[in-house]
């Protein structure tokens, strides 16, 4: 049996009781006054712009708000305008479609590829890993050129599916690296035991490996989702028809037409941010530990 070097931290099931609703482990010393002040300042820096966005979206006199900290009132008017005349309902659907396709395919493919690079020895394994990491460093703008030309040849320029394929290419490297750490952290002995008990590879994968790397899958799917949902430059260049726009492009174009209407613009910004927040809150218990485990394992 091979030696299993002790991992830097034990990332198997690291989600338990560390994050989210469960109490965080903490230094026992409590905060001093200056520390409280610093924390409040940092919190203000983080939250205030977001508060400003949401409160302006609800302010009936958003355009002339200036420096008043509280909105002059609360109204859903801007939201209904954005969803109705602004066409953001369709944009949200487009983005959701692209993001869901990206997340599903990239999770499945990345997991299988991660098992391959984490578990098996084959020629050029290390080189392949480095190549995948380098692919992550290529600026999107550089890839626009080959992908744009390719999509034009395949007549996928104005298509949401074409966009999903592109996002897949962006989210896969990170997903493979992240999941590799999780797979590597599962002791090989656990797999061996499954084989000894008569499992085939498929059964072992579904019943043993998959549950153990589930936190990692959650973390990577969040990143794939955010990648696809937020992406701007490809959506801007690929999509030509209004009805195909994703939220980021929709917002940019909408802003162009309503330059001074802060209310609707901030309402649109809030609206397109909400799905990310919801998705994040649903999985945040697993996310931080997942990120950490994947990070430490490389």
């Amino acid at each position: 049996m091979s030696t299993t070097p002790a991992p830097v931290i034990a990332p198997v099931a690291p989600e338990e009781s560390r994050d989210g609703a469960a109490p965080l482990r903490a230094d026992r010393t409590s905060l001093r006054p200056w520390q409280v002040a610093t924390l409040v300042a940092l919190l203000g820096f983080a939250l205030f712009p977001a508060y400003w966005m949401v409160s302006t979206a609800l302010d009936p006199r958003a355009s002339t708000r200036g420096g008043s900290l509280l909105p002059s009132g609360l109204t859903p008017r801007h939201f209904s305008f954005v969803l109705g005349d602004g066409g953001f309902g369709a944009f949200l659907l487009n983005s959701a479609l692209v993001a869901v396709v990206t997340v599903l395919i990239s999770s499945a493919v990345a997991l299988l590829a991660a098992v391959a690079v984490a578990r098996f020895r084959f020629p050029l394994r290390r080189q392949i890993l480095v190549m995948i990491l380098v692919a992550q460093m290529v600026p999107l703008e550089a890839l626009v050129i080959p992908l744009f030309l390719q999509a034009r040849t395949l007549h996928m320029l104005n298509s949401l599916l074409g966009l999903a394929v592109v996002y897949l290419a962006f989210s896969l490297p990170f997903a493979v690296w992240q999941l590799r750490g999780f797979v590597a952290a599962v002791p090989v002995e656990v797999e061996e035991a499954a084989y000894v008990d008569g499992c085939g590879w498929g059964q072992m994968f579904l019943r043993v490996l998959l549950p153990l790397v589930a936190p990692g899958l959650v973390a990577t799917s969040v990143f794939s989702f955010i990648t696809a949902w937020n992406e701007f430059i490809f959506a801007l260049t690929f999509l030509q028809d209004d009805d195909k726009y994703t939220v980021a492009v929709g917002l940019q174009k909408f802003f162009g037409e309503h330059t001074a209407d802060w209310g609707p613009i901030m309402a649109a910004s809030t609206l397109i941010t909400v799905p990310v927040v919801v998705f994040f809150l649903l999985v945040q218990r697993n996310l931080v530990s997942g990120l950490a485990a994947g990070a430490v394992k490389g």
Partner: peptide, 12 residues
């Protein structure tokens, strides 16, 4: 709450 900025769509 500290994570909020990370969640706002970059263009927004």
């Amino acid at each position: 709450m500290m994570i909020t900025p990370f969640l706002v769509v970059p263009v927004a």
